[in-house]
């Protein structure tokens, strides 16, 4: 879900996604870069993201990923679920304390 969020903001290449994930989570997540690419492949196969080859600012070829319409929908849906779960957890925890 987080990868999806990253590429929904702006098309990004694999390395950049890794960097952004670390930044966005304030360094809480240190992304295991070994599992980043399989994850991207899975999202591609689900049709939630798409990719294309572009030239970077430094003039090198790189593969950029961005979300598809379906990906956006899924992101929204997952967000809802996540929010609900988070609220539930908060309620329980809030009660407990």
């Amino acid at each position: 879900m987080m990868i999806l969020k990253v590429v929904s903001l702006e098309a990004e290449h694999g390395w950049g996604i890794g960097q952004r994930l670390e930044l966005m989570s304030d360094g809480v997540f240190e992304v295991n870069q070994g599992s980043l690419y399989p994850a991207l492949q899975r999202l591609l196969r689900k049709g939630w993201i798409t990719s294309e080859w572009r030239t970077t600012d430094s003039g090198r070829r790189a593969r950029y990923y961005r979300t598809t319409k379906r990906g956006e929908r899924e992101l929204a849906a997952e967000r809802d679920t996540w929010d609900r779960q988070v609220r539930a957890v908060e309620r329980v925890l809030g009660w407990a304390t």
């Binding site: 290449h13 694999g14 390395w15 890794g18 870069q33 690419y37 080859w53 090198r60 070829r61 790189a62 593969r63």
Partner: peptide
């Protein structure tokens, strides 16, 4: 080949 190139790019940036 694409995957190799992508990984090589990643390594380079890193």
């Amino acid at each position: 080949a694409e995957m190799d190139e992508e990984l090589a790019f990643h390594l380079e940036r890193e």
